[in-house]
Simulated scan of single mutants.
Amino acid sequence: MPADDLDKTDRAILAALQNDGRMSNARLAETVGLSETPCARRLKRLENDGYIDRYRAVLSRGALGLGVVAFVLVRFAVHDRVVATRFEREVQAIPRILSCHNVSGSADYILQIVARDLDDYGTFMRDELRGLPGVTSVESALSLREVKAYGGLPLS
């Protein structure tokens, strides 16, 4: 179903679940102005149609002792599909790399990385990131303060 086929109620369900993925069906139905059975049917349809990718908990970096967030521009000297595929596979296996995007512009990839502190980040850069397939240079931008975290996708 194309996004244009989502009505106001579908969008309200998706918005409510982006704010609280553990919301009970009863509370969700009340929030969007439906009775429970039609709400459950709509929710199941939204899941089956792929609008809801998965449910997850958002963990606290602070509570887990991950005080450093870095955005890293990764560059390759040679653009070889085999090397890029190996790089992407290895990146997916490293938990401290939260996201990886293949981008246009001066870099080939942008990574979001977490670390306990600057020493931990430096060790990771030296021992792991710089040794990944294809990597010839990296440039880090350290987050000084998070202004907005993942707030969900726009539904308008």
Rank of each mutant, 00 (worst) to 15 (best):
R89Y: 08
T85L: 14
P133N: 14
I94W: 13
S99Q: 10
T9A: 13
L14P: 03
V72Q: 06
L142Q: 08
V78I: 12
I94K: 09
V82H: 14
T136C: 11
G33V: 01
E88P: 03
L153M: 07
E88L: 14
D7N: 05
R54G: 15
L142F: 10
R89L: 10
A57C: 05
R145A: 11
V74C: 01
L34R: 02
C100Y: 03
D4Y: 15
L98Y: 02
D4F: 15
C39V: 07
K44W: 10
M1E: 04
L73F: 13
F124Y: 12
S24R: 15
L142C: 08
T31F: 00
L144M: 03
Y55D: 09
Q112D: 12
L46I: 09
V68D: 00
L111F: 08
V103Q: 10
K8S: 12
D10I: 05
I113G: 00
V135I: 08
Q92V: 14
G50T: 12
A63M: 10
V91S: 01
V72D: 00
L46A: 02
D127P: 07
A93W: 10
E88C: 06
V32F: 01
A115G: 06
A57R: 08
M23N: 13
V91L: 05
A15G: 15
D119N: 08
G134S: 08
G21E: 12
V114R: 02
V68M: 06
R41P: 06
S143Y: 01
M125A: 06
A141L: 11
L98P: 02
R22V: 05
V69K: 00
Y51M: 07
T9I: 13
P95W: 03
S35L: 05
T136Y: 10
L144T: 03
V91P: 00
D10S: 04
R96W: 03
R126F: 15
R41T: 13
L28W: 04
P38N: 03
E146F: 05
S143A: 08
G65S: 07
S106W: 15
D10Y: 04
F124G: 10
A149V: 05
M1R: 03
R145G: 09
G134D: 01
Q92K: 13
A84K: 01
L155T: 01
A16H: 02
G21F: 10
V114G: 01
R89H: 11
G21L: 06
E139S: 04
V83Y: 00
A84H: 06
A149D: 08
A70F: 07
A16K: 01
L64M: 05
P38G: 01
R41I: 13
G67P: 00
L64C: 01
Y51L: 07
N48Y: 12
S35W: 11
G134P: 02
R116M: 07
A40W: 09
S137D: 08
R130G: 06
L34Y: 05
E128V: 14
G122I: 13
